[in-house]
Measured scan of single mutants.
Amino acid sequence: WIARINAAVRAYGLNYSTFINGLKKAGIELDRKILADMAVRDPQAFEQVVNKVKEALQV
């Protein structure tokens, strides 16, 4: 799951650890299995999560 998430978030200019930190700051409580599945099956929803994380990180 970690490898999938890392590959997906790198397309948005983040790395895995920064993304996970941003999830916590944004108050998003999705587990890694769901995030990895979302990255593959629903990229639009995953992009929305990434955008919320970037807002929380102020990137």
Rank of each mutant, 00 (worst) to 15 (best):
W1C: 14
W1F: 15
W1V: 15
W1M: 14
W1Y: 15
W1H: 14
W1Q: 14
W1S: 14
W1N: 15
I2L: 09
I2P: 07
I2T: 02
I2Y: 11
I2F: 08
A3H: 07
A3W: 05
A3M: 04
A3S: 10
A3Q: 13
R4P: 04
R4I: 15
R4V: 15
R4A: 14
R4T: 15
R4D: 15
R4W: 10
I5W: 01
I5L: 07
I5A: 01
N6R: 09
N6V: 05
N6G: 10
N6I: 05
A7M: 10
A7D: 15
A7T: 12
A7C: 03
A7F: 06
A7Y: 07
A7W: 07
A8R: 02
A8V: 05
V9N: 00
V9E: 01
V9D: 00
V9H: 00
V9T: 04
R10V: 14
R10C: 03
R10G: 14
R10T: 15
R10Y: 12
A11K: 10
A11Q: 12
A11R: 08
A11D: 12
A11V: 10
A11I: 14
Y12H: 07
Y12F: 14
Y12G: 01
Y12I: 03
G13T: 01
G13S: 05
G13Q: 06
G13N: 13
L14T: 02
L14H: 01
L14R: 00
L14S: 01
N15M: 07
N15A: 07
N15E: 10
N15D: 10
N15C: 04
Y16C: 03
Y16L: 08
Y16K: 01
S17G: 08
S17Q: 13
S17Y: 11
S17M: 10
T18K: 12
T18M: 08
T18S: 09
F19P: 00
F19I: 01
F19R: 00
I20W: 08
I20G: 03
I20V: 10
I20D: 13
I20N: 08
N21I: 11
N21V: 12
N21A: 13
N21K: 12
G22A: 04
G22K: 01
G22R: 01
G22F: 03
G22M: 03
L23G: 02
L23T: 04
L23D: 00
L23A: 05
L23M: 12
L23S: 03
K24A: 10
K24G: 13
K24W: 08
K24V: 14
K24T: 08
K24C: 03
K24L: 12
K25T: 12
K25F: 09
K25M: 10
K25D: 09
A26W: 03
A26R: 03
A26H: 02
A26V: 11
A26M: 07
A26Q: 07
A26N: 04
G27Q: 11
G27W: 04
I28M: 07
I28R: 02
I28Y: 08
I28L: 07
I28K: 03
I28W: 05
E29Q: 07
E29D: 14
E29P: 10
L30G: 11
L30V: 14
D31G: 05
D31Y: 02
D31A: 06
R32Y: 08
R32P: 15
R32C: 07
R32L: 15
K33P: 12
K33W: 15
K33C: 03
K33F: 11
K33E: 15
K33N: 12
K33S: 13
I34D: 13
I34A: 08
I34Y: 15
I34K: 09
L35F: 07
L35R: 01
L35G: 01
L35M: 06
L35H: 02
A36R: 03
A36C: 04
A36I: 10
A36V: 11
A36T: 04
A36M: 08
A36D: 04
A36W: 13
D37E: 12
D37W: 09
D37Q: 08
D37L: 05
D37V: 06
D37H: 11
D37G: 07
D37A: 04
M38E: 02
M38L: 13
A39Q: 03
A39N: 03
A39F: 08
A39G: 03
A39E: 03
A39R: 01
A39D: 04
V40N: 09
V40R: 06
V40C: 09
V40D: 15
R41W: 13
R41Q: 15
R41A: 14
R41K: 13
D42R: 10
D42K: 10
D42M: 07
D42C: 05
D42T: 07
D42A: 07
P43H: 06
P43R: 05
P43L: 05
Q44K: 15
Q44C: 04
Q44L: 12
Q44M: 11
A45Q: 14
A45L: 11
A45T: 11
A45I: 08
A45S: 10
A45D: 07
A45M: 14
A45E: 14
F46D: 00
F46S: 00
F46V: 01
E47I: 05
E47R: 07
E47Y: 09
E47F: 08
Q48W: 09
Q48E: 09
Q48T: 07
Q48L: 12
Q48F: 11
Q48N: 10
V49T: 04
V49I: 14
V49P: 00
V49R: 02
V49S: 01
V50Y: 02
V50F: 02
V50T: 04
V50H: 01
V50P: 00
N51P: 00
N51F: 15
N51I: 14
N51V: 13
N51T: 11
K52S: 13
K52G: 05
K52E: 13
V53C: 04
V53G: 01
V53S: 10
V53E: 00
V53W: 01
K54Y: 09
K54N: 07
E55S: 12
E55A: 12
E55D: 13
E55G: 10
E55I: 13
E55W: 13
E55P: 03
A56C: 05
A56E: 09
L57V: 10
L57E: 05
L57A: 07
L57C: 03
Q58L: 11
Q58K: 10
Q58R: 13
V59E: 12
V59K: 05
V59F: 14
V59I: 12
V59Q: 11
V59L: 08
V59S: 15
V59H: 12
V59G: 13
V59Y: 10
